[in-house]
Structures are given as structure tokens and as C-alpha cells.
């Protein structure tokens, strides 16, 4: 049941990304281009998602276990460390260079978009590089 729900959530999430127009990198770049012809779409997408998400998370936060009995895995960390801030800045630079973030890139690559495939291959290499560096550090 947990695995089936993971599949269903992935599907709904992907459909949401397509319906909202976020699989078009030029729309993301138009959102990030405050000095150009600004497209506020992304703000509506995040606003809509957070509106529903906030209700679900306020219920989830009060529970020890999920409705299906799985442990509630919510991080309790609240320090702003260097990894979080520098990592986010580096992510933002890559996002601005391409108009791709991980979710929409995976959906576009799956649809056979050649440039999205290049981006996803490189992104996976970046993630693999991170786990190699982390493992060496242990």
C-alpha cells in the first residue's frame, strides 16, 4: 500500500508539474527574469501547492505515525548551516542557467526531450559526485 501510494503521488506530482506549465524552462527563466517580461506563474504554482500542503502538514506534525502506520519522518533540524545556504545558492545558479529544477527536468526527460536528458544525466552525475565525496569524508 505504501509503495502503491508512492507511485500514485509521483504520478499526481508529475501531472501537476505539466498542468502548471513548469516543464517549460522558458517559463521558469521568465519568472526569474525580474528585469525582463516577468511571468509570475511559478508564484501561483507554489502558492497553490503550499495552500493545500500547509493543511496536510499541520495534521502530519501532530502525529507520530502516518495514516497507514508508517513512521512520520519530518526533520526537526532548524539551524541554518553552510551546506544548506551554499548548496541552495549553487542550486539557484544552475536553476537560473537552465530553467530546470529536478522535478520538471525528470518529467521532460521522460517525455523524450533531448536537452532535458542532457541536463538530467549531468544532474545525476552531480548527485553521484556528492555521495562519493560524502563517503570519502566518513
Amino acid at each position: 500500500m505504501l509503495n502503491f501510494n508512492a507511485f500514485l503521488v509521483g504520478l499526481l506530482f508529475g501531472l501537476g508539474l505539466i498542468i502548471s506549465g513548469m516543464t517549460d524552462p522558458s517559463k521558469i527563466i521568465a519568472f526569474l527574469d525580474l528585469a525582463g517580461a516577468w511571468d509570475p506563474s511559478l508564484a501561483f504554482v507554489m502558492g497553490g501547492a503550499i495552500l493545500v500542503g500547509a493543511i496536510a502538514f499541520s495534521i502530519a506534525k501532530k502525529r507520530q505515525r502516518s495514516l497507514l502506520g508508517a513512521p512520520m519522518r519530518l526533520s526537526s533540524a532548524n539551524e541554518l548551516d553552510k551546506g544548506l545556504l551554499i548548496g541552495s545558492l549553487v542550486f539557484g545558479i544552475g536553476w537560473g542557467l537552465s530553467g530546470f529544477c529536478p522535478g520538471p527536468a525528470v518529467v521532460s526527460a521522460a517525455a523524450g526531450q533531448p536537452k532535458a536528458l542532457i541536463f538530467v544525466a549531468s544532474m545525476l552525475a552531480g548527485m553521484a559526485l556528492y555521495s562519493m565525496i560524502e563517503r570519502r569524508g566518513k
Binding site: 501510494n5 499526481l12 512520520m72
Partner: peptide
């Protein structure tokens, strides 16, 4: 944008409520 966003929110909400 808003309707796609609502769907993303529903997906994220289902994941935390059912799978934690």
C-alpha cells in the same frame, strides 16, 4: 499555474499523511 499547484499540494499532502 494555480490548478497544477493545487495538484502538487495534494500529492505532497498524500505523501506525508499516508507515507510519512
Amino acid at each position: 499555474g494555480l490548478s497544477g499547484g493545487l495538484l502538487i499540494g495534494i500529492a505532497a499532502g498524500m505523501f506525508v499523511l499516508l507515507n510519512g
